[in-house]
Write a protein that binds this DNA or RNA. Structure first.
Lengths: 194, 194
DNA sequence: TCAGTAAGATACTGCTAGTAGCTTACGAAG
DNA sequence: CTTCGTAAGCTACTAGCAGTATCTTACTGA
């Protein structure tokens, strides 16, 4: 690309990551090639390989760049049902976005590498747990739920079921009726049982 | 391979499928190559491509061959908890077997092809639903559960959560404690609620 | 007996991950 | 201002695999 001044260190690394992010957003993980990233970043493949050991490693780093930084707080609609639907809808939006698609592609391609798998999983799975616990705690304060419901399993059951929908159905978004079904038939009965 | 008599039609097709099954069991979907299958079957790649349009299609056909034909019935331990644990343990065994690993590899590789995705999903997702409904119906007859619990969502919730564990954790088997946690904290409370 | 069909063998294209080695710009130390 | 090490840039390469093409040869059924 005949840069006027040759980039180095952090600047170059940032340029590569930005290129990888753009490629991921435009064509996804499956079709991303190292040559493509190098070309877009205006550099060469071996420069990339000096920093990341493989295509997967680069894409995981790029994926991390894509995550929204400003985490929004837990919703507070006044009822547990409203909060749960809001959280689940938000999770559904995230999972059906390009970011979610890329995460699923990555997860599907990594399950031979337990190391990378764990870091990816931790980053995503436990991302929203605290929100659910917050919402449940508020509901407990209102007397809506008993303390028996405050286990991680129950707190995450809705998101877990949503994730299962994606695992089975692939890339398409999950219908809102499924969300209400999960909330009304599973989450609320578990949370509010006497 | 200099066959004495050249195989044709169904015999050849069966030989190819058998070779593909063996390759899948030994090295998995990811590492299976068409050259490898052809060599093992003692034939040539283009013969395979005359019958299946792609590697994925061949492997789906081979996967179908691997499925156990003799479906065992629903367990009957006398209690809903025992039945549920038996069913969930069985599902866990299946999912942690080579067959389960191959299914996950296939699912992860197919989500661009909605057609194949659907046939695969139907084959597996709905495979065990009837068992859960049977077990729930028996429990209802014993008075253990109310009719409110007999929705497909509740019937499959345990397997759905188990599948989620695999989606997050990769190829490793799920610990028995997780199974009991799912049954005791989610399935039983939902099934037996008043 | 004689076609038509399909198996078999081989070679090829095209694509991509990852590697190697050389050249050249930068930048820090003196 | 000079020198020298490091890393960027460039180009070319290997190796492996999906999928295609072509030609020869064996079987089969009429």
């Amino acid at each position: 690309m005949t840069q006027v001044t040759r980039r180095r260190g952090a600047a170059l690394e940032a340029a590569i990551l930005r290129a990888a992010v753009e490629e991921l957003q435009e064509i996804g993980y499956r079709d991303l090639t190292m040559d493509g990233v190098a070309a877009r970043a205006g550099t060469a493949k071996n420069v990339i390989y000096r920093r990341w050991p493989s295509r997967a490693a680069l894409c995981i780093a790029a994926y991390r760049e894509m995550l929204p930084t400003g985490a929004d707080g837990a919703p507070d609609t006044g009822s547990l049902r409203g909060d749960a639907l809001a959280l689940l809808t938000r999770a559904n939006d995230r999972m059906s976005s390009p970011v979610g698609r890329i995460l699923r592609e990555l997860l599907g391609d990594i399950h031979s590498d337990p190391e990378r798998l764990r870091e990816l999983r931790d980053q995503v799975a436990h991302a929203g747990v605290s929100h659910w616990l917050t919402v449940l705690a508020r509901a407990a304060a209102r007397g809506e739920v008993g303390p028996a419901a405050l286990t991680p399993r129950v707190a995450t059951v809705a998101v877990d079921l949503l994730r299962n929908e994606y695992a089975l159905n692939g890339a398409t978004s999950v219908a809102p009726e499924v969300l209400t079904e999960i909330v009304d038939q599973v989450f609320l009965p578990l949370a509010t049982r006497s």
